[in-house]
């Protein structure tokens, strides 16, 4: 006889988002802060917020706050320091989501 115990933590665990889903969500967040139509259309891991999307550095703070709200995570200062590219930002979001789930 097999006894399966479903603990609440296991039961309600969020399905982790994959990288593509995070990038897609990130694209929606950064769009209002950039006027670079072509760079936005071709956003990928290598996109740089300042060099490619020409986002004003004061608006990077808004992006970090939007990310915290959207993903329900907290971005510490050391993590924020790295968030200049889509790649670094996606990695940080994935780490924080994983930490929340675990």
């Amino acid at each position: 006889m097999v006894l399966v115990i479903l603990t609440p933590a296991l039961f309600f665990k969020n399905t982790p988002m994959n990288k593509e889903e995070i990038i897609e969500a990130l694209k929606t967040i950064v769009e209002p802060y950039s006027e670079e139509v072509s760079a936005l259309a071709h956003i990928d891991e290598n996109t740089d917020f300042i060099n490619d999307l020409k986002i004003n550095s004061a608006n990077l703070v808004d992006i970090v706050l939007d990310i915290e709200e959207k993903f329900n995570i907290e971005i510490d200062n050391d993590s924020m320091a790295k968030m200049l590219t889509v790649k670094a930002t996606t990695e940080i979001i994935a780490q924080k989501l994983e930490a929340n789930a675990g």
Partner: peptide
Amino acid sequence: LAKIQSNWRRKNYLDKIF
């Protein structure tokens, strides 16, 4: 431009920078 581009009164905004 800063006035329309950035709302520094947004919750947690100042705390991230200053």
